[in-house]
Design a protein around this nucleic acid. Structure first.
Lengths: 318, 318
DNA sequence: TCTAATTACGTAACTGATTACGCAAATATA
DNA sequence: TATATTTGCGTAATCAGTTACGTAATTAGA
């Protein structure tokens, strides 16, 4: 299909579907060639039953990876053809024990030649290819099991979008943004406190002049996130990270992470040995971001904020 | 899926279907993540339309390899979403010209980032595999296009079955078989002639004693085919191949070919330079078998048989 | 120039899978 | 021991494709 050369790999789903269709179509003719009265879709069920033991519907469906209604339907069709027999279990009235009938067993013997020939045909096909389709599928199954295509794409998205993010130093023009972004999330989850107003209404006096700093994240040159490094008045800690806020419209672009990294770097340049922060456990994405940045929970401390119920710190390697 | 390790490669259809399903399932979530109101199944249609030109239903269906009703349905859904517009062609009233709407074009721009991220995610996946799935599919498409899975399996079948075929020299116990097998096909297609009875009623006197020979094909030790090398009384030809017959029950097992090869080898050992044969053009499989054995048509000659309307010869390399 | 064949495409029915749901039997729990 | 939960599995609806078929418009041919 020339079409797929143009689309690129995002059409891999469509392309797979077409190949699948072509193969199953031939499968039907192959059964006919061997004079075996069976539909290709019965194969997985037939195969597990040809081991000999009777099995329940649920059992079969788990083994072959189909839904149970699908197996149920297939069994009904196979019963009609006389290939299998059903029998209610005596001990457990829910169980429908299915096994191959005499006719089914005959076919199971007869079909072995067909298995051999198909396997050989595919083996021969495989020797003519540079990439082994069977193994490739296996590898994809394994990798997608570890991490789905969805999360893989999400990571690419994040990475790409973080290229459009610029982290810059605070400038008075961002005073309003600094307040708005913070007020937005604080009042959404909690309520604004006295200490919030002090910092947000006078960042220059309350943060910068005391030797702290503020970073602003621009996405396509629009300010969408802020974060501050605040000088503390505490024998244990010199600096606190706080007032981190990212616009809900710009979520999922790694902006929080980039701001955090920026603040940590600032603290390192200022010679800080560790950074402190306070948060609340209901802010799960925030907590997990702090973890990702390297922060760890510390024993509870006094806080000027009512909403603070968790404290964390990060040790800085100079 | 552990199941597929047991079945072997004949379940490649099922396995492909499952992988396809897993991927397209994720595809739907991916569109949602990019906030694009589109179904994965629309993608191929959307893609060809995003080139800009208006296209007909048939045109699109050919390009993407779907049936036209499928495209027709998809277009209707996309019209409902406002992604495409339809317009009857002025010159040819049958044509339904479809093109992206303004909204469709906006999405086409917006979706480009998604394309990039998906491609990167798949590229990254590919670097983690030893067998490139995309290329493997491409190779299978190519090989199946040259020769379908069905014919590949048929060849394996033939090859396997020909191992169960033994070609042996004539023995008086096969006199009846020799006559019956020949009478069967002759009277099915034509009618028995005087010359037939002479040869079939007295193979010893008419064929063997004159210096010819007869071969019998056994399939699982049951005689299912015969063929004779008959000494001719002709200045041009020394030997004729004739009286080849294979039971309809044993067709497709390469038996005719094996008998032919055997007769040719006999002729070679007898020092023959060429072999002659007569047949009728309505027996197409027979004619093509003769071709496969190396026989070529020669100018028409007189024949004792009414049914003969084609003559062939094979030059033997000693 | 009239009729036959071809082409475009829509509708209907089918296919092989799924999810949603409900019922009955068995098992766990208070 | 009575009630709640879990399990097995059947039915119904849905989904993304197909094939079959019909109809209208165009093109080819006698």
């Amino acid at each position: 299909m020339e079409f797929f050369n143009r689309t690129g790999k995002m059409a891999i789903g469509s392309r797979l579907r077409m190949l699948t269709e072509k193969i199953t179509e031939d499968a039907a003719s192959i059964y006919k060639m061997y004079d075996i009265d069976m539909q290709p879709k019965w194969f997985p069920v037939f195969y597990v039953l040809s081991a000999g033991e009777a099995k329940t519907i649920t059992n079969i469906s788990k083994e072959i990876g189909h839904s149970h209604p699908s197996v149920s339907k297939i069994i009904r069709e196979m019963v009609k053809q006389g290939l299998v027999t059903e029998q209610k279990d005596k001990k457990d009235g829910r169980l429908n024990m299915v096994s191959l009938s005499a006719k089914g067993n005959t076919i199971s013997e007869k079909i072995k030649d067909q298995y051999i020939d198909i396997n050989r045909a595919i083996e021969q096909l495989t020797t003519q290819t540079r990439n082994d389709l069977w193994k490739a599928i296996e590898e994809w199954e394994f990798l997608l099991d570890q991490q789905s295509l969805l999360t893989r794409v999400r990571e690419q998205k994040k990475e790409r979008e973080s290229l459009n993010v610029k982290i810059i130093a605070y400038d008075p023009q961002y005073k309003q943004v600094f307040k708005d972004l913070n007020e937005e999330w604080i009042s959404r989850w909690f309520k604004m406190e006295e200490a919030d107003y002090r910092a947000l209404d006078d960042p220059q006096g309350y943060i910068l002049d005391k030797g702290g700093c503020i970073l602003v994240a621009l996405y396509n040159d629009v300010p969408v996130g802020v974060c501050a490094l605040i000088k503390m008045n505490d024998p244990d800690y010199e600096y606190e990270m706080g007032k981190m806020a990212v616009s809900p419209l710009a979520q999922g672009k790694n902006i929080g992470f980039l701001l955090g990294k920026g603040i940590i770097e600032k603290a390192r340049l200022l010679g800080a040995k560790k950074i402190y922060l306070e948060s609340n456990t209901i802010l799960k994405p925030a907590i997990s971001l702090y973890h990702k940045l390297g922060f760890n929970k510390v024993a509870s401390r006094n806080s000027p904020y009512e909403r603070s119920n968790i404290q964390m710190e990060l040790l800085i390697k100079q």
